[in-house]
């Protein structure tokens, strides 16, 4: 009933009653999303700080321990995640142009690439579990020279693990967006939820862009 009245006045159905116009609603959503992303950056910031301290304390150990990581798998995962970021950006662009089916294709591609990332990560993790290259007191591996090699794997699992949780969260939201796109909830006039999902997904990509050289490319 409310919506009927609103539409009669020329308000689109997706415009919540507490906003003056569509533009204000969109800008508010974006402001809220960026503030959330700020808290996400600070969350990872704590781990980056811990990483900086330990690496500056044990530079040689970090160099030796990083050889236990598979550079090929790491580089592949970087390419996979960047590509998924690109397809996510293209999904938003497709909806800006009102092309629903193309949006869904791009969202499915993004999901497929995100799954690929997680599968590769699973093989990397499984290999390390098998060798006992585990965090902290669970570390039993004997093949790495240097002081406190378990700290490298503590940081590795903490940072890539938290990042992996973000990948799973991002995939859930992308899946939800896929469902809503299929339901016809979005159009060229209203695609804010997909745009916000995209911002989140790009941040996940952004974090990995820094994790990759910090763990796989130590010299």
């Amino acid at each position: 009933m409310h919506d009927e009245a609103a539409r009669a006045e020329g308000h689109p159905g997706f415009l919540a009653h507490h906003f003056t116009d569509v533009e204000q609603q969109r800008e508010s959503a974006k402001l809220g999303m960026w503030i959330f992303l700020l808290t996400e950056i600070l969350l990872f910031g704590g781990l980056f700080c811990a990483y900086a301290i330990y690496r500056s304390w044990y530079p040689d150990m970090f160099h030796n321990a990083h050889k236990a990581l598979d550079l090929t798998l790491g580089t592949t995962n970087t390419i996979v995640l960047i590509t998924s970021s690109l397809t996510m950006a293209l999904a938003i662009r497709s909806m800006q142009l009102g092309r629903k089916n193309l949006t869904m294709v791009h969202l499915v591609l993004t999901l497929a690439l995100a799954s690929t990332f997680l599968v590769i990560k699973y093989f990397e993790y499984a290999h390390k579990f098998h060798l006992g290259q585990l965090p902290g007191k669970f570390y039993t591996y004997q093949g790495i020279e240097g002081t406190n090699p378990h700290i490298f794997f503590t940081m590795y699992f903490a940072m890539t693990g938290l990042h992996g949780i973000h990948v799973i969260a991002g995939m859930s939201v992308i899946g939800w967006m896929l469902y809503r796109t299929a339901k016809g909830h979005f159009s060229a006039a209203y695609y804010t939820p997909i745009e916000m999902t995209g911002l989140y997904w790009h941040l996940v990509d952004l974090v990995w862009i820094f994790l990759f050289p910090l763990f796989y490319l130590i010299r």
């Binding site: 800008e27 974006k30 402001l31 960026w34 503030i35 992303l37 700020l38 950056i41 600070l42 910031g45 980056f48 700080c49 970021s85 690109l86 996510m88 950006a89 995209g198 911002l199 790009h202 941040l203 990509d205 952004l206 862009i209 820094f210």
Partner: peptide, 29 residues
Amino acid sequence: GLLVAFFFMHLFYDNKLYFMIFGFAIAFI
């Protein structure tokens, strides 16, 4: 990271307020 933020996340084209929020996060880290 800047390429992703500027173009994929549209910071280059958007209201500069969002870029400030992003910048503050990086600065405080």
